[in-house]
Design a protein around this nucleic acid. Structure first.
Lengths: 151, 151
DNA sequence: TAAAATTAAATTGTGTGCAACTTAATTTCA
DNA sequence: TGAAATTAAGTTGCACACAATTTAATTTTA
């Protein structure tokens, strides 16, 4: 192996280190942030995935599963059982759309709407445990959105 | 409700929108990036979690489960079955440490070491599908590391 | 030094997350 | 128009991910 080839091999292996990855800190940070939500969500008897689902419903009141999946980057395999669970808690109703029976509409109930009150403080509380400046948070959010768009 | 209170309520609810969250783009981007790894990892018959585990082993050759969990932000509940699977594929050996029988040492095998060759191209291929500049990637990585440290 | 506390893995149970497939409804187009 | 293609949900199976608990080994300390 020539010196140049050896150099290349080292560089290649260097890239296989965890610390040089973009993906790994993304994966780890995502899990850690969700972990910080859990104690607050537990009080509402919601998981993180159930929480972001409710966030969409608080905003839109009504949405079909396909669109919901597009919002949340989740498929019906994940959403169907999750929505059944939220329905059993009384937070939403599921019903086939008469105009196109393939579609299932998910509609916020009064109970589900009321839950928003109890969730009000969560974003603020989370904000205080993230020790980044407002500028850094904005910058991070921008980069993540850019990354998401390109994928 | 006074105008001021109404204003505050609106602001509070504004923060409960998905687009104003930091956590959600983090969660979504993480999943999407992992999804892009999958076709490459499938050729090596590895899941993403198995891949990052192998990355640690390629770097350290030998590590106990506790430390591995600290590296990967994973606990024994996730790692024990995952390591058994990697052991059954012949990539590593697990053995109790004689000096302290509570510890299980995980050691890279020759087969596991050879796998590194086949994984060599993955970081480069992933790099090309992330449409961010080198500066942006570096900035994103820095912010994520900073976020991880503070949590 | 022996009981109490701590520690590391493993186990159990629940909830995603997703690929692959099935089912049923609707749309396309030959 | 009627068969083929497409679409939306649901189902199945596998692999995490983690809280909570258990087990076994080691360390602390009364």
């Amino acid at each position: 192996m020539t010196q140049h080839e050896e150099q290349q091999t080292l560089q290649t292996y260097e890239q296989l280190k965890l610390c040089n990855q973009l993906c790994f800190p993304l994966y780890a940070a995502s899990k850690e942030v969700v972990k910080h939500y859990r104690p607050y969500l537990k009080k509402l008897d919601l998981t993180y995935t159930q929480y972001i689902t409710m966030m969409v419903l608080w905003e839109k009141r009504e949405i079909n599963i396909k669109e919901l999946g597009d919002c949340l980057y989740l498929d019906s395999g994940t959403l169907t059982p999750l929505l059944k669970k939220l329905e059993s808690k009384g937070y939403l109703k599921r019903s086939r759309l008469p105009a196109d029976e393939r579609n299932v509409m998910v509609t916020l109930t009064q109970t589900g709407s009321d839950l928003r009150q109890e969730a009000r403080d969560i974003p603020g509380k989370m904000g205080t445990c993230v020790k980044l400046s407002q500028d850094e948070i904005q910058e991070l959010r921008n980069l993540l959105h850019k990354l998401l768009e390109t994928l």
